[in-house]
Design a protein around this nucleic acid. Structure first.
Length: 143
DNA sequence: AGCCATGCACCG
DNA sequence: CGGTGCATGGCT
């Protein structure tokens, strides 16, 4: 019997840097080192420097987006980086006019296919943010 | 830990 | 040359 359970969907509130509003060109979003979040993505270790893989996402209109999931781990190779990023998202972010505060939601279907959707900022919800105070801007969503 | 920022390479 | 992405460093 298989008892291993993985989250089927996660979401992230975009930062200004994620959307490119800060003028940066890092072309993607940061993925916090949270077990529940990382388990959604392929496991990338520190055996090789800056390992990556391309993930194929489908949006609600049926369009296909290929994002690159990278583990910048040069901290283990005489550098200082130790973080995960999902890059090549400029097209998706621009075509949907996503801004800081908006959410991106990733879902995995039973057949392994990946879906991506987004949600505009809800200001009322923002107001309660201080009270809820989620540890990271990512959260596991059960569907 | 997470977000901000930037030099360089590549490509249309 | 401008947009995009890679890789990396800095700041909070």
């Amino acid at each position: 019997m298989e008892l291993l359970v993985h989250p089927q969907a996660i979401c992230k509130v975009l930062s200004a840097n994620d959307t490119g509003e800060t003028g940066g060109h890092q072309a993607g979003i940061l993925v916090p080192k949270d077990e529940d979040i990382l388990s959604f993505f392929p496991q990338l270790g520190k055996e090789t420097k800056n390992p990556r893989c391309v993930l194929r996402f489908e949006d609600l209109s049926g369009a296909i987006w290929n994002f690159t999931y990278i583990y910048y781990n040069n901290k283990f190779y005489k550098g200082t980086r130790n973080e995960f990023r999902l890059t090549s998202m400029t097209g998706f972010i621009k075509s949907n006019n996503l801004k800081a505060g908006d959410k991106i939601i990733f879902l995995r279907l039973d057949d392994g296919r990946l879906l991506i959707k987004h949600q505009r900022t809800n200001k009322l919800e923002n107001d309660t943010d201080n009270v809820l105070r989620l540890g990271t801007s990512w959260k596991v969503v059960n569907i």
